[in-house]
Design a protein around this nucleic acid. Structure first.
Length: 426
RNA sequence: GGAGAGGUGGCUGAGUCAGGUUGAAGGCGCUCCCCUGCUAAGGGAGUAAGGGCUUAAUAGCUCUUCGAGGGUUCGAAUCCCUCCCUCUCCGCCA
């Protein structure tokens, strides 16, 4: 959620910044009008409340000194004021609710450095590492769903039997590889990130904090009976880890990581990328997340990016890094770098990590603050996160990239410690 | 799921069953000052968050918040109702 005071103080710049996303900004005009109205009513309401308090105090004194008869006219006028106060209060509450509902749907303000653009086409390629398209051998140009079936390590057909389309099931060494990737993803970041194993079912409030609700309810699984949501990413519980808390500055940056299952309905993408592991409803991921001061944010952003990148690079995969343009930026983010891995068999770039700086957008929703050492009072923290390792797409890229001429798959060196002595899958 | 106890500030803990400067005693912690070879002990002062308005600023005024919501009342931490959560015991269970 953006700071409404920013809107009051510098309406034009905010509007201009939001419109860089290609979003309609009419709601901003609406909000600023309602806000003005709300404040003027609140002022009158508070004035009345003050007068009522004053009267009550006098009534109390009169009762104490036995002058009960003198109290009744005061009580009468207090009752009248209360009626007015209640009317104003109600109006004021309605406006506040309306403002909040609108404000929750306003996306974050893109960072100045975020490049201009309308769509994914305009994302800036920061760098490309690894093999060029022509360099791949023919035996590497086999899609992972075919490899997986042949080697008995991926069973999409049975997964569909159990859960329907766009679910996957890893079998045998395929499952071991999956587990190895998770271990690898966690262990390499354990030097700086504290491991958390959070719940994967969360309250509505927890989903609102990251910005996944109310705007993107269709993308998430909801357990209606208990009003719980299946998390689409560990970003959701981790962002709420410190919800409604005040962190002391000495604890920042606070770095956390989690391995969880992630659940996505993929509402808008039915029929797209349906083969194999390209897009699935449930998958495993290691997520890195940090709370930071605004001053620390830049450095932490780079830290998460370099960790996410090196995890891919060390596996020997080809990848590229994109600086997302304003039109493609996620709703809650101010700046995002995507890491896309190249899958030579599927012949696609697959997004494996979005490393984002959310400025104070999520933390304001989650009410995570910190007490600064010099300035008095509290300030809202910044949140940052990115996937340290997203299993299915990395799994797919490994299987395709490491396919040998004989059809076997060589296990990349960094994963060997996690593979129980298995060096290749035949 | 059943029975009981309870949810108050950074923590602890009074106040609730006699409703009236109680945003809330005391203690701990923390900050500053004094005392003091050092440390410890001692003495003093301060110490919730959020919103609005005024101000160049320091600051001031005001409202809200004692788990949440509603009710009674001139006035609610305190009385009534509903819900949520925590703890203990029982049942069930990985």
């Amino acid at each position: 959620m953006i700071d409404i005071r920013l809107l009051r103080n510098d309406f034009k710049s905010v509007k201009k910044a939001i419109s860089r996303r290609g979003e309609d900004t009419d709601s901003l005009d609406l909000i600023i009008g309602l806000d003005e109205k709300q404040r003027s009513i609140a002022e009158k309401r508070d004035q009345l409340r003050n007068e009522i308090k004053e009267l009550s105090r006098r009534v109390g004194d009169l009762h104490k000194s036995g002058k009960t008869d003198e109290a009744s006219p005061l009580q009468e006028s207090s009752r009248e004021m209360r009626e007015k106060e209640e009317a104003l209060s109600e109006e004021c509450d309605q406006l506040s609710t309306e403002i909040r509902e609108l404000l929750l749907r306003v996306p974050n303000i893109p960072a100045e450095e975020c490049p201009n653009g309308e769509s994914a086409e305009d994302n800036v390629v920061v760098r490309v590492e690894g093999q060029s398209d022509e360099a791949w051998e023919n035996y590497q140009r086999v899609p992972h769903w075919e490899i997986g079936e042949t080697l008995g390590i991926l069973d999409v057909e049975r997964a569909t039997k159990l859960s329907g389309a766009m679910f996957a099931m890893y079998t045998g060494l395929g499952a071991t590889l999956c587990r190895a990737l998770i271990q690898y993803g966690l262990d390499r970041n354990a030097d700086a990130y504290r491991e958390i194993r959070p719940p994967t079912l969360v309250l509505t409030e927890t989903m609102v904090s990251t910005g996944h609700l109310p705007k993107f309810a269709d993308d998430a699984y909801h357990l209606e009976r208990d009003d719980l949501w299946a998390i689409p990413t560990a970003e959701v519980p981790l962002t709420s880890y410190a919800r409604d808390e005040i962190i002391s500055e000495s604890e920042l940056p606070m770095k956390l990581m989690s391995h969880t299952s992630c659940f996505r309905r993929e509402a808008g993408s039915a029929g797209r990328d349906t083969r194999g592991l390209l897009r699935v409803h449930e998958f495993d991921k290691v997520e890195l997340l940090a709370y930071a001061t605004p001053e620390q944010a830049q450095e932490v952003h780079e830290d998460i990016l370099s960790r996410a990148e090196s995890a891919i690079a060390d596996l020997g995969l080809s990848y590229r890094i994109l600086d997302l343009c304003s039109g493609d930026l996620g709703n809650s983010s101010a700046r995002t770098f995507d890491i896309e891995v190249y899958a030579p068999g599927a012949e696609q770039w697959l997004e494996v990590s979005s490393v984002s700086w959310f400025s104070d957008y999520q933390a304001r929703r989650a009410n995570v603050r910190y007490r600064s050492e010099e300035a008095k009072g509290t300030s809202v923290v910044h949140t940052l996160n990115g996937s340290g390792l997203a299993v299915p797409r990395v799994w797919a890229a490994i299987v395709e990239t490491y396919r040998q001429e004989d059809g076997s798959i060589r296990i990349p060196d960094p994963l060997l410690p996690y593979m129980q002595g298995v060096k290749s899958i035949n």
